[in-house]
Design a protein around this nucleic acid. Sequence first.
DNA 1: GCCGTTTTCGGCCCGACTGTTTTCAGTCG
Length: 620
Amino acid sequence: MPVPNSYIGQIFSQLADLLEIEGANQFRVRAYRNAAQIVSQWPRSLAEIIARGDELPKIAGLGKDLSGKVTEIATTGNCSLLQEIEKRIPGQLSTLLKIPGLGPKRVLLLRDCLRIENLRDLKRAAQEGKIRELPGLGPKIERVILRELRKPQVELPGSGEAPEKRRMPRQTAEQIIHPLLHWLENVLDVKRLIVAGSYRRGQETVGDLDLLATCDSPLSAADSIMERFIQYEEVASVLARGRTKTSVWLRSGIQVDLRVIPEESYGAALHYFTGSKSHNIAVRALGVKKGLKINEYGVYRGSRRIAGSTEEQVYRAVGLPYIEPELREQKGEIEAAFEDHLPSLVTLQDIRGDLHAHTLATDGRATIEELAEAALRKGYQYLSITDHTRHLTVAKGLDPGRLLEQIRKIDQINEKLGDLRVLKSSEVDILENGSLDLPDEILRELDITVCSVHYKFNLSREKQTERIIRAMDNPYFNILAHATGRLIGRRPPYEIDMERLMLAARERHCFFELNSQPDRLDLNEHHCRLAKELGVKVAISTDAHHVSELEFMRYGVTQARRGWLEPENILNTRSWPELQRLLFSKRSYSPLSRDHPQNSRDSLRKHMQSGRHRVPNSDS
DNA sequence: GCCGTTTTCGGCCCGACTGTTTTCAGTCG
């Protein structure tokens, strides 16, 4: 089993922490931290590439030395540099960095003066009042340490593991942010109020919220908005209170930072507080090369401010076109901007229909008509009704007979609807042996199929991948739904070889779904980029179980944008005739298809007449 | 340790806030 990229990333992150504590060159530390992020998020398994004997791809940020360490970790599971450093300082020292207020200097001080090597030692020293006696530290930091160590996620047995910072789905964050924005609106002299940070970049989960307010210079409204902010009833504690920046902790467990900036600095501030940090560093470095200084107040040549009221101005100052927030992760967007190869990202307006929705017939809470009317109101051209199949008994999955009834009903609805076409479809279970949960005779009656894994998540990577590829061999398999099965924060993805699956899908004219449910967002952004690179088209679908969930499309579109996807890469940006042509390429590809002359069109009738199902009234 | 729109060495983003100080180091984003 090759080591996952995340494991290599963790070692780099650990190296960065320990080197920083040792007082190593800060740029060397940054290189390791940067590499940790790059490697963890790299869409393909680096260990597999090495195991195959292939060359590692050229990755910006991984030079000769770090590439060598990737190879070492991938082949041996260990890193000699880490072992060497751990002879000098204990590895667990890095866990102390997770305590707010403790950075490398103080951690080293704690070790040198009090022999503190882990969280347990730290707790004992704090309880005995020894921390406050150290130079530069005092009773306040001691209280913070004890408070943090009382939190269950920090106090870990053996104190060896880093605590996970809590992150929430965007939908949850929206429920927190909207009332807060409402509370802050209408403060006199506040011109604009906007959520920046990772939320604006469209990250799938939100760890903290960055609010930006502008007012006329010189910060006429700063005091009143800060005061209003800390009076918000959901504020549990005020972490920092300054003239231009205030941070609070909300009862919901999320940190919110509010920055107040002069209106003229809006663009520079929005750019700065949108991040990401590494993107900002790269943009500022470009500025430095041009003799410019870029901060949240503007772009400066010497002491003269030359730009900053819009983000476009900031980018123009360093010779770049505007870069969309979702791309600002320092993952090639600046290089693409230089080469004029930035993607024209898909937007909500590009979407022509939804290809995954459930009704009352199974586990949905809406009728076909209700969903269809809502889709029509959204201006869609088509909507797929994709109820579950019989294997998913907990969702009252449809057997062939009930599905045929639904097909007839959809035909009747389509006669009445006019501009919207309801597609006859199904979310077909992929069984353990890779077969589909409906006979081909039924599947061929559908306009489109969405196929998914709902059980046996714990198969080996090899078996799970084989299972899905076998399913794709079926001539009626169109879209692989929620490919990894993850539920954000609740269930990890099951093991699959995503690249192999995508290559198999391409060969078989199949597609991948980007499921827009806010706790799924499955594919993730890296999978989206991989799909684009491999030429596999993606359907952005809501998997709606209620009319209101058709609105989840926006989460899917945001995720797709983070994955650099353009309208061309998306299945449901196409009109129904265009989509039909793409689907037809699958059936005409397959030797088992009814569209091949040797396959009789009336085999459905034969199947139904075998006695297991009622025969439909007519060929639908 | 990385990298080249000053290219193989020399530079690498920038400011706010806190706590412990009495002018600033450390931390954070």
